[in-house]
């Protein structure tokens, strides 16, 4: 058994990691602005998956068009953004204004998560599929164009998802640095009172942050629909663990590090678990006579193990690590050789 996974699996792992990165970036954003840990974030992403499924059933059922990769994330992102705004303005802001603690707000997001999960499940159960007989649990992997990479036919979402993550991150970066509202958002994250003193409508900034966070989640969720074996909103209960792990590994102090943390955790879950599994079964099972079991289903051990390691040894996450010092050390070691 080869230790390193094949091209197809590596690409699907990269796509998964990119989606988790987008979700972690959005989760970090609303945490930075409103200080609310949003446990409904992955289920908000599932809105994107459901929208993608409906688009395939009604429009793209026999076309295998690349357009699905444009319309799906935009429509899914918009729907999720609208829900994010509704959730913040109708539930979380009124609760925060009444002086509820972070714990109270966190519990409220858990309640929203379960309600939304049930609503999405109900929609898929009740909505008659036009071209897909049963929407809940439907596997949409066949409804996408195929492409060749290094002579191998691969699912195109595995290429599209990392590119989408790159494009959305670039656009988000330009928004934060080149527009006055984006600079106002960064300023509000750092010091809301002072931003208010400068004439910034902080409440509007918070609302927009929930919209952006929802959009990132919905866009990722729309493309993730191809990665799941069947579109089922209940998957979000597992995804949210990974998304939080990504945000915590990133450090919860910067949206960019949120993205990187999500990618690291996503890769650890997929590639890391597979490599460890292959090492175990190739070396330890025959060598030490250990039970011949597959470890690939224990991927959450990787992400949560990473969280514990980070909390123990780098409490401020990857963002808090002095990378300059590490690079200088590496250079000095290289120079000394």
């Amino acid at each position: 058994m080869p230790i390193l996974p094949g091209l197809t699996y590596t690409l699907s792992s990269l796509a998964y990691a990119a989606a988790i990165g987008l979700l972690s970036m959005g989760l970090t954003l609303t945490y930075l602005t409103t200080k609310i840990p949003n446990f409904a974030h992955a289920t908000i992403g599932m809105i994107g998956s459901v929208v993608m499924l409906i688009l395939i059933d009604r429009i793209f059922y026999d076309s295998n068009s690349w357009l699905i990769f444009l319309l799906g994330p935009i429509a899914g992102g918009a729907a999720a953004a609208a829900f994010g705004v509704l959730m913040y303005r109708a539930i979380l802001k009124p609760l925060a204004d009444r002086g509820n603690s972070v714990i109270g707000l966190m519990i409220a997001t858990l309640a929203v998560d379960i309600i939304l999960l049930n609503i999405l499940t109900l929609i898929l159960n009740l909505m008659p599929g036009e071209h897909i007989p049963k929407l809940i649990g439907a596997n949409v992997v066949g409804f996408q164009p195929k492409i060749r990479v290094a002579g191998i036919v691969v699912d195109s979402y595995t290429i599209v998802l990392p590119i989408t993550a790159l494009v959305l991150t670039t656009l988000f970066h330009l928004f934060l640095t080149r527009t006055s509202f984006g600079v106002a958002m960064r300023a509000t994250i750092e010091n809301p009172d002072l931003a208010s003193a400068m004439g910034v409508n902080v409440s509007l900034v918070y609302t927009v942050s929930w919209a952006l966070s929802g959009f990132l989640a919905g866009a990722a969720g729309a493309l993730m629909a191809f990665a799941f074996k069947g579109v089922d909103p209940a998957v979000s209960a597992l995804v949210i663990v990974t998304v939080f792990a990504g945000s915590i590994v990133g450090g919860l102090t910067s949206v960019y590090w949120g993205l990187i943390g999500g990618i690291v955790v996503g890769l650890a879950e997929k590639l890391g678990t597979t490599i460890i599994n292959n090492l175990y079964r190739t070396l330890l099972v025959p060598g030490l006579g250990l039970p011949n079991i597959s470890l690939v289903n224990y991927e959450k051990v990787m992400s949560l193990g990473l969280v514990i390691m980070v909390l123990l040894y780098a409490p401020q996450g990857l963002a808090g690590v002095d990378w300059g010092r590490i690079l200088r050390k590496i250079k000095s070691v290289k120079g000394g050789r």
Binding site: E190, D193, L194, A195, S196, V200
Partner: peptide, 27 residues
Amino acid sequence: PPHVRAKRGIAYLPQTGNIFAELSVRE
């Protein structure tokens, strides 16, 4: 609210945190 007062012509400079440390001087 404060942002409306700021627009009316009131400037408040708190003791600390009166600049955005993570932004550039230009920003």
